[in-house]
């Protein structure tokens, strides 16, 4: 009986794991906007090369689970790993490294940071 139960559990895990992974993979798209931990409004976003630059730059950070850049709203959405965080200073440095400028940083807790204009 225990063997049958284990086999059944294993089968369920095998059949649901790909679906769970697929659901996780979808978070790299527009769906990420709704659940993002951090939303960064940017200046200079005019094309897909801009979004690629930002995605590649932020995904190199260990804290970042997924990213999405929306050219219409000019917002970079960041989904962080559980318990992870990135400071506003680090975000602004990464944005600048990719070649852009930060307008504001909004967090899930409702806080909004707007760096002083240069």
């Amino acid at each position: 009986m225990k063997l049958i139960l284990s086999a059944a559990m294993g089968a369920i895990m095998l059949t649901t794991a790909p679906a769970a992974m697929a659901a996780g993979a979808k978070l790299a798209g527009p769906e990420l906007v709704e659940i993002a931990d951090i939303s960064v409004e940017l200046n200079g976003l005019v094309c897909d090369f801009c979004s690629i630059a930002l995605n590649k730059t932020f995904k190199k950070r260990a804290e970042v689970l997924a990213t999405y850049v929306d050219l219409d709203t000019k917002i970079l959405s960041l989904d962080l790993k559980d318990g992870a965080d990135i400071s506003n200073d680090d975000i602004m440095k990464l944005v600048e490294k990719a070649g852009y400028n930060t307008v504001s940083i909004a967090r899930k807790d409702g806080s909004v940071y707007a760096p002083p204009a240069k």
Binding site: G44, L45, V46, G99, Y100, V103
Partner: peptide, 12 residues
């Protein structure tokens, strides 16, 4: 070399 870049909300 990128000598200068100017980003605004709607342009680069």
């Amino acid at each position: 070399r990128l000598i200068k870049r100017r980003n605004t909300r709607d342009s680069q």
